[in-house]
Design a protein around this nucleic acid. Structure first.
Length: 519
RNA sequence: GCUCCGAUGGUGUAGUCCGGUUAAGCAUUUCGCCCUCUCAAGGCGACGAUCCCGGGUUCAAAUCCCGGUCGGAGCACCA
């Protein structure tokens, strides 16, 4: 062994090849553009159950998409089941419209859960397990006020309620019978008040919230916290692998302890980092003011990282899925650039996007000595997507950016039309005169897009850019590009993806406008 | 403050558990070339990482050990 090990690596390899020729060939080639999640521990084919547990307290965003895709992908990978569970245990935050919004978001992502349920469906069960925990001496009723609790928790000291918890048992009945009101009493887990893990310092399991719940109305006032509901529900629902974002990491001990005390099955819990794009926060705290102050149009504004916004921007669910999978389930906290998502999206929409002509800030070009012409324009350069006819008399419009580069005597080609020679151009007046040259394809002359005076509509492209620069809202985050498009755009329905030649991919919004997706 | 977690090219990651098939794979970005009546897509190629730093163990360390640094998270009657 010593001898072999001390040989140079090349020699070791030679010897290895002689003795065991297959050993060095086991590495599989990585398929391009295909990303997979790593295998799961303790996962049996057909037996994996995952769950996506959003709280219906807002519109779903890219962060939800990441969690949902991971949950679904693992369920699929092991031919298991995916549960969608609305984690609706705080009537202060939840609204009916958000349940629907989340459902819509998922269906847009093509994620179809096998089971759909609400944590609130199991409220009586949750109460039952709460009582059980108290009876076993693993939880107690605490009557202290919040400041006291906070104070003692930070010092690692128990309160009198805890100390007396074995003697004072009647409070338990009282809290379940509705004797107490909001802020008067809570149920706490009997953890370890001086644990290093602060999540174990007797966290709250139930509290009283006298608000109307979107599903249960006013019937219930004693609501479990996430810390209690999540492990119980996961265990009861048969979840084998529970994924959550990494800020819950320290709660793992609690999660397991609760189930252990109750002698319930403990699922595998795994964490992944939150997903947020650079310059595009996901938090309601940052987004809501934008909407309230009308800086953006609403939750479906194409600048927003909400699923509705991203859909409107022209991102495809398939691109989002690939993107999420390419991220993996790492714990490292990073903010990927949206450019990666765009790259995935581009590859998907390229093959379904018709190529159209649009010019912004149009300059009127009169063409001398030319006859009326009809061009047949292919809808896609390499894929059979039909074609359309465009009539051209002797006036076309080109964009002023292109016009600026023109000089007298210069020869250019109007894409798919013919070559012209510039005889006069005035950017200020937005006009120019050119001569017809010929219709021979030449390699070294500029090719620019145009629209025919005979066949145009006024059109607008909304171009989203960075929402925030640093910490500040970018007031120029929605650029408006106005110009002319060929009238063919008006025949396309909302949501159609197109590519305006030399401009970029856009999603058709209506007869008058489109939203710029990306280059 | 205390506790936990992370750190691989410009960016996102694979590999780290079980040290040697790889001085590092993939994707993206940027740049070339080919293709193309688009500044798109496709094809080919290039640039780019002494794997946070310092020390140790070992014939051999991105991978193991110790000590730092930087970044993030938790410490709610939110989830």
């Amino acid at each position: 062994m010593e001898q072999i090990n001390s040989l140079p690596i090349e020699r070791q390899r030679e010897l290895l090849l002689q003795k065991c020729p297959t050993y060095l060939e086991t590495k599989k080639a990585v398929e391009k553009n295909e990303f997979h999640l790593p295998p799961l521990l303790n996962a049996k084919h057909g037996k994996v159950v995952t769950r996506f547990p959003p709280e219906p307290n807002g519109y779903p965003h890219i962060g939800h998409a990441k969690a949902a895709v991971i949950d679904e992908e693992y369920a699929k990978m092991y031919a298991g089941k995916l549960i969608l569970r609305f984690d609706d245990t705080n009537p202060l935050n939840e609204k009916l419209e958000y349940y629907d919004a989340i459902m819509e978001g998922l269906s847009w992502l093509n994620i179809v859960p096998d089971i759909i349920k609400n944590t609130s469906d199991d409220i009586h069960l949750l109460h039952f397990y709460g009582k059980k925990l108290i009876n076993k001496g693993n939880a107690y009723i605490c009557l202290c006020d919040q400041n006291t609790i906070h104070h003692l928790r930070s010092k690692g000291l128990p309160c009198q309620c805890r100390i007396d918890s074995d003697k004072v048992l009647e409070n338990s009945d009282k809290i379940f019978n509705g004797y107490y009101h909001q802020n008067e009493a809570i149920i706490r887990f009997k953890g370890n008040m001086n644990s290093d893990n602060t999540a174990m310092r007797d966290p709250t399991l139930f509290r009283i919230i006298e608000n109307t719940h979107p599903l249960l109305g006013d019937k219930i006032i004693l609501w479990p916290t996430y810390d209690f509901a999540a492990p119980i529900e996961d265990s009861l629902d048969g979840v084998t692998h529970a994924f959550r974002t990494k800020e819950y990491e320290l709660r793992n001990e609690l999660y397991q302890q609760i189930l252990k005390n109750l002698e319930m099955r403990i699922p595998e819990v795994l964490e992944f980092s939150r997903l947020e794009f650079e310059g595009l926060p996901v938090s309601k705290r940052k987004l809501k003011p934008l909407i309230e102050e009308k800086k953006v149009e609403g939750w479906s504004d194409p600048r927003l990282p909400t699923l509705m916004g991203m859909k409107r921007r022209g991102f495809t669910p398939e691109a989002i899925r690939r993107f999420v999978l390419s991220l993996g389930i790492t714990l490292s906290e990073t903010k990927p650039s949206i450019g990666v998502l765009e790259a995935f999206n581009r590859k998907i929409i390229d093959s379904i996007s018709k190529r159209l002509l649009f010019v912004n800030d149009p300059v009127k070009i009169t063409i001398k000595n030319v006859k009326q012409k009809e061009v047949v324009f292919k809808n896609h350069p390499s894929i059979e997507m039909g074609s359309r006819k465009i009539y051209v008399n002797n006036v076309v419009f080109i964009s002023s950016q292109d016009a600026e580069k023109l000089k007298n005597g210069m020869e250019i080609r109007l894409i798919e039309l013919y070559n012209i020679k510039v005889s006069y151009i005035d950017i200020e007046k937005k006009e120019g005169i050119v001569e017809y040259r010929d219709n021979i394809l030449k390699e070294n002359i500029p090719k620019i897009q145009w629209v025919s005076e005979e066949d145009l509509v006024k059109y607008m492209i909304l171009k989203p850019t960075k929402l925030f620069i640093g910490d500040r809202f970018n007031h120029n985050s929605l650029e408006v590009i106005e110009g002319f498009a060929e009238s063919f755009v008006t025949t396309l329905s909302t949501n159609t993806m197109v590519q305006f030649i030399r401009l970029g991919f856009c999603r058709i919004e209506d007869n008058k406008s489109a939203i710029f997706t990306h280059k």
